[in-house]
Design a protein around this nucleic acid. Structure first.
Lengths: 232, 232
DNA sequence: CGAATGGTTGAGTGTCTTCAAACAGGGTGG
DNA sequence: CCACCCTGTTTGAAGACACTCAACCATTCG
């Protein structure tokens, strides 16, 4: 499909070993799609017909349990591959990907996955590193949920967010997409009430500045100390 | 290295698309190593010089947090790849792999990883599926830790164990390696005390039969119901 | 301007952890 | 072969952390 910005894609670490020719081949079979805020790219349980690359914006991947509880499995940042369910012999998507901000994604049919990897071993290694990192993030999260109490988990989650989606402002670092207390709760395995209380307390200490679906971190250092378990 | 059982390796799903010639090449650069119960294959933080395949036995991969708390990241079963830290540009092992039973592992130098994948795209896809499955398991565990209370998490963990390491006996299904309450606690993010109480209660209901580092599941059905959240 | 969504805060409660003590079994050395 | 020790397990009691329930407030959007 025409009109895809090659220089933007070129700059992604995933493709830093891919030749220009190979990259053109990849892009030629991709489509790009604009996703408005709040809309789903794909839904949990739907057949995995495509896989995706986020070019611009921000997505939340959510899962709903049998009894209706929601959790956020991960946040997708620009440059991330996502929705590659078929890469592991799944026929459906294990979660729902929702745009937390207006987003642009590249789309390929799932059949292309195996083709690309076989034709392009460097990409296979890159993709594997990507998945491997994701695995390690998941283990980190498991460790945190096993050993840390809620306040530290929330601190870690917020630190991760400003690292991956932080925009420096005059007073501190802003999370550059709309995120609710409910979202943070679903990322840390707690309730929005507890998150609200924690953020209020932090605001009182001058660590952060809240707002409706907004969060500005004033003192990342202090938050780090909290995350590492220093009592007060 | 001579003396590695090719038919055993051949039967692993990981290699079901690998040609005999390629498989021989792989095995020719591997060494096999016997690991007695309680001994570590590699230690957390040590340079990732090798990657491994478990042929026989059972391993626990553990992580220790900064403040000394332990968790079990996963259990390694025969046929599983493990310790492939370098596959994701890590230079050290993120955890410690300890033999929960006398084990036999195949060992390769990490340099071989990239070589194998580039020479053998089918293997790359197989390896990626392996890692992908692991990622999904991790997400499942995160979901359970976020939304389920301890008893259900323990039930899920035990069900997973009998599925992956269950040996049918006359009265039920036995977990076929030594596992302590502490281990189960570290797999589910709770304390050995709570696990002990839960297992005692289950024993009272005739669901399981305990013992020192032993566990026999008498009623998998009943356990499943518990895991799915049916109150009593 | 009103409805809807998101956020705050209080009170009460329950699950699980922590602290503590005692017990069981398996292996080892005398 | 038995006593002892070490490790793993059981169980009780107290307390804390975070959840649930509930009510109210604030902000945004149609």
């Amino acid at each position: 499909m025409a009109g895809i910005d090659r220089t933007l894609v070129r700059s992604l670490t995933l493709f830093n070993k891919t030749s220009d020719a190979d990259l053109d081949a990849l892009l030629s079979s991709a489509a790009s799609r604009r996703v408005p805020r709040g809309e789903a790219v794909f839904e949990q349980g739907a057949p995995a017909t495509h896989f995706y690359l986020l070019l611009h914006g921000r997505l939340k991947v959510m899962q709903v349990t049998a009894d209706g509880q929601q959790i956020i499995v991960r946040v997708v940042h620009p440059g991330d591959l996502f929705g590659f369910a078929r890469a592991l012999q799944r026929i459906d998507y294990p979660g729902t990907a929702i745009a937390a901000a207006e987003s642009i994604v590249l789309v390929w049919p799932t059949d292309m996955w195996a083709v690309f990897l076989e034709q392009n071993p460097a990409l296979a290694i890159g993709a594997m590193q990507t998945i491997g990192q994701r695995l390690e993030e998941a283990h980190t999260r498991i460790r945190e949920m096993s050993t840390e109490e809620v306040e530290r988990r929330v601190a870690h989650a917020v630190l991760r967010l400003i690292k991956q989606a932080g925009k420096t402002e005059k007073n501190g670092i802003r999370i550059d997409f709309q995120i609710s207390r409910q979202d943070i709760a679903e990322m840390t395995g707690t309730t929005l009430h507890t998150v609200s209380r924690i953020l209020s307390a932090w605001e009182g200490k001058g660590l952060v500045e809240g707002g409706r679906q907004k969060l500005l971190v004033l003192d990342p250092e202090g938050l780090s100390r909290l995350a590492e378990g220093y009592r007060d």
